[in-house]
Structure formats: C-alpha cells, structure tokens
C-alpha cells in the first residue's frame, strides 16, 4: 500500500479528534464536577508525562536528576518557562561533561 495513503489516514483521524470538540463545543460547562475536572486535567497530564520519564530523558540518571532539581528550584521561584527549560538542559549537559 502506498505510504501516502497511510499518512492521509493518520493525519485525518488525528485532526478530527482535535477539531470536533474545539470547533463545536461552545456552551459554558456549568457542572461543578466537570469544571473542576477540566481545571485539574492539564496539570495531571503534564505530571504523568513528566514522572518518571524525565529521569530517562538524557540516557543518564545522574545528569537527568541534576537537570530535574534545577528545574524544580527555578520553577519554584516562578522563572519564565524558557529559562527553566534551558537551565535544566544546560545543567544536565555540564554534568555530563564532568562525568
């Protein structure tokens, strides 16, 4: 089968999943439960995606832990996203050079 047909199906299904709720849902949700659920879901998604994956993200546990600690400290003090992200990465890189 041609690869382009596969790509078309992949892209089509993925787009429709994103499109329908975003385009057609206009009412404000009034249910307190649902509103609370939707408020918490982004933080829960990011947390589940980060832990424990972050510890394997550099291929070396020590550099990953150093980067994670740097990110935790800087984000605790609410530094901008890019500062936190790049500092964590730089910390892991420099730690890797020392190892």
């Amino acid at each position: 089968m041609s690869v382009s047909i596969y790509i078309l199906v992949m892209a089509g299904v993925t787009y429709l999943i994103r499109f329908f709720p975003f385009a057609f849902f206009r009412k404000k949700i009034t249910s307190k439960f649902l509103r609370s659920f939707l408020y918490y879901i982004p933080y829960a998604v990011l947390s589940a995606m980060t832990i424990p994956a972050i510890f394997y993200s550099t291929g070396n546990l020590i550099t990953a832990v150093v980067g994670t600690v740097i990110a935790l400290i800087l984000s605790f003090f609410e530094l901008p996203l890019i500062v936190v992200a790049l500092s964590a990465s730089l910390g892991a890189f420099l730690t890797g050079l020392l190892l």
Partner: peptide, 15 residues
C-alpha cells in the same frame, strides 16, 4: 542527550 530534558523542564515550570 541534554536536549531530551528541555520539554520536561518546561512541564515542571508549568506545574
């Protein structure tokens, strides 16, 4: 390898 940490660092900065 170090670039692998960028996204996760950003996630932490959000949560």
């Amino acid at each position: 390898a170090a670039l692998g940490l960028v996204l996760y660092g950003m996630f932490l900065a959000i949560i």
